[in-house]
Computed example of a mutant assay.
Amino acid sequence: MKKKYQYITFLLLLFALANVAQLVSCSGSKAEEADKADSAAESLVSVDTGKMPGGKYGDAVRYGRELMLHTAYYIGPEGINGHYTGNKMNCTNCHRDAGTRPYAFNLVRSFRDYPQYRAREGRILSLAERINNCVMRPNLGRPLPLDGKEMISIMAYLKFLSDSSNVSKTTKGLKNMEVELPNVAASSDRGEVLYAQNCERCHAKNGEGKMRFDNVTYEYPPVWGLLAYRPGSSMHRVVKLAQWLKGNMPYDKTAEGKPFLTDAEALDIAAFVNDDKKHKRPLPKTTKEVDYPHYEEKAIDYDKGPFKDPFSEQQHKYGPYKPIIDYWEGQGIKPAI
């Protein structure tokens, strides 16, 4: 009987030790996960594109990256693999370094973040639909077939970016740089002077950009005109464009996370570039397109009414934006910026 009790005591001791080991392991694992999350939040977003997979999936990933970098060459108006985009701009003109550059419409989280509700469309969009948004709006094109090589390759590349990065939603550089919104409206006239000083040398006085020597694509893309992005594109919003400009332009004077332009300067340049009274832009191909069908969800710098607030199209476009923000926050609604 004594031996039996000793055996049971031994088993209980083993069970207790196993539980302690498991708790230590779990707590250590959780601590490691927490450390990784903290590290991801504090570090600047980065991806090692040299570690692409092999095989047929790797081929798709590499072609997807090529499509980002050389969109016009492959699927532009004279593309070798199809004619889908309507101008000769490349995805990397906005999503710099094929979507990997911090503060430049970074795409590292896109495969994780979609499907996603989009206020502009007023519904949940798949990642493929969001890709076609870019093909149709800034690139003036027609949708890529959802089961085609190009769409699948772009999505494979975006999956690779997601799989190859250690990021959280708060990792630095995933979003464009924030700009402080002043108490005065952005000025197209001030922006015109700043454009001449900072932008004209590349994008030309008339905004048409600079075509590459082989006429395949742009060395510097157009910023207005009938071959630039059209109204309804994200870049056509003054605050959204200013955030991008702050983090990226002038390209040879701005380092990652170290802007050259002040917030006010970025807003004024964005106001000038997006001044449709001064510059022409391509129009949507259909009159059936409706942006922000739920008016209370409209971005504060979206300038087409009707609005469910007392502010004019002029103020929505150029500001001052703080009264608009205060109004919606007073309604218990977080305004979209």
Score class of each variant (00 low, 15 high):
residue 31 A to N: 13
residue 180 E to K: 14
residue 246 K to Q: 06
residue 48 D to G: 06
residue 78 E to N: 04
residue 163 D to S: 08
residue 18 A to D: 02
residue 90 N to V: 00
residue 15 F to W: 14
residue 295 Y to Q: 13
residue 42 E to V: 13
residue 96 R to W: 08
residue 37 A to Y: 06
residue 294 H to F: 15
residue 95 H to N: 04
residue 138 P to N: 00
residue 18 A to N: 04
residue 172 K to H: 06
residue 262 T to M: 10
residue 320 P to K: 08
residue 235 M to G: 04
residue 322 K to D: 07
residue 49 T to G: 05
residue 155 M to V: 01
residue 142 R to A: 02
residue 241 L to F: 11
residue 263 D to V: 06
residue 73 Y to C: 01
residue 154 I to W: 00
residue 320 P to M: 12
residue 319 G to M: 03
residue 102 P to Y: 11
residue 300 I to M: 14
residue 246 K to R: 10
residue 117 Y to V: 11
residue 237 R to T: 03
residue 309 D to S: 15
residue 162 S to L: 01
residue 108 V to D: 00
residue 308 K to P: 07
residue 223 V to L: 09
residue 28 G to M: 11
residue 95 H to K: 09
residue 263 D to G: 08
residue 291 D to M: 09
residue 148 G to Y: 00
residue 127 L to R: 10
residue 31 A to D: 14
residue 289 E to F: 15
residue 190 R to N: 10
residue 117 Y to K: 07
residue 268 D to E: 02
residue 220 Y to Q: 04
residue 185 A to T: 00
residue 140 L to F: 12
residue 216 V to Y: 02
residue 159 K to V: 03
residue 179 V to I: 10
residue 63 Y to V: 03
residue 121 E to V: 05
residue 105 F to Q: 12
residue 105 F to Y: 05
residue 311 F to T: 10
residue 101 R to T: 01
residue 44 L to G: 07
residue 313 E to M: 12
residue 33 E to I: 15
residue 146 L to F: 00
residue 336 A to Q: 09
residue 89 M to E: 02
residue 173 G to H: 05
residue 41 A to R: 14
residue 331 Q to C: 03
residue 187 S to Q: 05
residue 22 Q to H: 14
residue 198 N to T: 02
residue 26 C to A: 14
residue 319 G to Y: 08
residue 315 Q to F: 03
residue 174 L to W: 11
residue 140 L to R: 11
residue 194 L to Q: 03
residue 283 L to K: 15
residue 65 R to S: 00
residue 253 K to V: 02
residue 311 F to S: 13
residue 94 C to Y: 00
residue 109 R to G: 05
residue 228 A to S: 15
residue 112 R to T: 08
residue 231 P to N: 07
residue 293 P to R: 10
residue 128 A to W: 03
residue 118 R to D: 15
residue 224 W to V: 15
residue 207 G to P: 02
residue 164 S to W: 12
residue 85 T to N: 00
residue 50 G to T: 04
residue 49 T to S: 11
residue 69 L to Q: 13
residue 248 N to H: 14
residue 19 N to T: 01
residue 295 Y to L: 15
residue 45 V to G: 13
residue 58 G to N: 02
residue 207 G to E: 08
residue 153 S to M: 00
residue 335 P to Y: 12
residue 249 M to W: 10
residue 151 M to T: 03
residue 230 R to N: 04
residue 129 E to N: 07
residue 82 G to A: 03
residue 49 T to R: 14
residue 189 D to Q: 08
residue 24 V to S: 11
residue 180 E to H: 13
residue 216 V to R: 04
residue 210 K to M: 11
residue 4 K to M: 05
residue 42 E to C: 09
residue 37 A to N: 10
residue 326 D to K: 04
residue 79 G to P: 06
residue 190 R to A: 02
residue 261 L to S: 12
residue 30 K to Q: 15
residue 198 N to H: 01
residue 174 L to F: 10
residue 178 E to A: 11
residue 336 A to W: 07
residue 317 K to Q: 07
residue 119 A to V: 09
residue 120 R to S: 15
residue 225 G to Y: 10
residue 182 P to I: 15
residue 47 V to A: 13
residue 285 K to L: 13
residue 137 R to I: 13
residue 102 P to C: 05
residue 7 Y to E: 13
residue 105 F to E: 12
residue 174 L to H: 01
residue 2 K to V: 08
residue 280 K to T: 15
residue 257 G to F: 09
residue 146 L to W: 00
residue 61 V to C: 02
residue 220 Y to C: 11
residue 189 D to C: 05
residue 185 A to R: 09
residue 329 E to H: 02
residue 188 S to C: 06
residue 185 A to V: 05
residue 236 H to M: 11
